[in-house]
């Protein structure tokens, strides 16, 4: 058997070098810097000391809660949308997909301000409700937790819709036909066939939303009235604010560990594809 020439064997390796270099330079090196910084205090754990109290654990917990809530809500809202796009949209598929992606073309802050105008005391929603005499005084939408959640879901929705759509698009329609043929209702078909088999798409979308949401602090600041602290707020305060970089790094490492553990648990929960079947 003819030996493949040596340069052919190593060619794939060379093609991978640019990507590898990028990854090392802009991810692993900074990561090592942060880890190094976190242990750079007077004693190697002294940067972690200030954070070993309930108030900071609450911050981490709050971010986790927001991320989980956001990802869950996005899943619940995005699934019907992705389903419609994949199965019912027909010729409208491409235009509608375009509309889903369109918000990305706009600056993020523009979106926040736009929502601020909508939800303001003098915004569209309040004006409409007042005119219809459904309320007497304007509702405080802004600077509240619901506003934060609304904005989070609004912003992260495309990250959920697109992978879900991709998974549902290539779903074998015959499996749905087979389920119906065997007497299942539409809802039973969803529960026993479509959802279990699109679980990988659901997982992908879930984590695409969950992970970034954890570090989110701009939206809580703008929409939440800056009342509560989230992980991002703390890190930003320590690194940009008081310039105590070592402690900022330490808190980052702590939160990241919490994130990894939470993500691991959620992944296991979302891996039981058959759970819906035995019932």
């Amino acid at each position: 058997m003819k030996q493949i020439p040596h340069y052919q064997q190593v060619k794939p390796f060379f093609l991978g070098i640019p990507g590898f270099v990028w990854q090392v330079l802009f991810f692993y090196v900074p990561l090592l810097c942060i880890i190094g910084l976190s242990f750079s205090g007077a004693t190697w754990l002294s940067n972690f000391a200030p954070f070993m109290r309930a108030s900071y654990f609450t911050v981490i917990g709050r971010s986790l809660m927001l991320a989980t809530l956001n990802a869950t809500l996005c899943t619940l809202v995005a699934y019907p949308v992705a389903y419609f796009l994949a199965f019912r949209a027909g010729r409208m598929k491409m235009p509608l997909l375009f509309l889903v992606i369109l918000p990305f073309w706009n600056n993020f802050l523009v979106h926040i301000y736009a929502w601020t105008f909508v939800l303001d005391h003098q915004g569209i929603v309040n004006t409409l409700l007042l005119k219809l005499n459904l309320i007497q005084t304007p509702i405080h939408f802004l600077n509240s937790f619901p506003a934060v959640v609304l904005m989070m879901v609004y912003f992260y929705m495309p990250f959920m819709i697109l992978p879900l759509y991709a998974a549902l698009e290539r779903f074998d329609r015959r499996l749905i036909e087979a389920s119906l043929d065997l007497g299942a209702s539409w809802w039973q078909t969803m529960r026993h066939v479509l959802i279990p088999l699109s679980m990988s798409g659901i997982r992908t979308g879930f984590f695409l939303v969950f992970i970034p949401s954890f570090g989110e602090f701009i939206i809580p600041e703008f929409m939440g009235g800056n009342k509560n602290m989230y992980v991002g707020t703390v890190v930003s305060d320590f690194i940009l604010g008081t310039q105590t970089v070592g402690q900022g790094a330490a808190f980052t490492i702590m939160s990241s560990c919490a994130l990894i553990i939470a993500a691991g648990i959620l992944y296991l929960v979302l891996s039981r594809t058959k759970c819906l079947v035995k019932g």
């Binding site: 074998d172 015959r174 499996l175 036909e177 087979a178 389920s179 119906l180 043929d181 065997l182 007497g183 299942a184 209702s185 066939v193 279990p196 088999l197 594809t273 058959k274 079947v277």
Partner: peptide, 24 residues
């Protein structure tokens, strides 16, 4: 609708549910 007819189908590519075993 499909699920209300007393008619069953054997599909060309079988359309077996991949996440279930033979019994299921």
């Amino acid at each position: 609708p499909i699920n209300q007819r007393k008619i069953n189908t054997v599909f060309q590519n079988y359309a077996l549910f991949p996440h279930l075993n033979v019994y299921e």
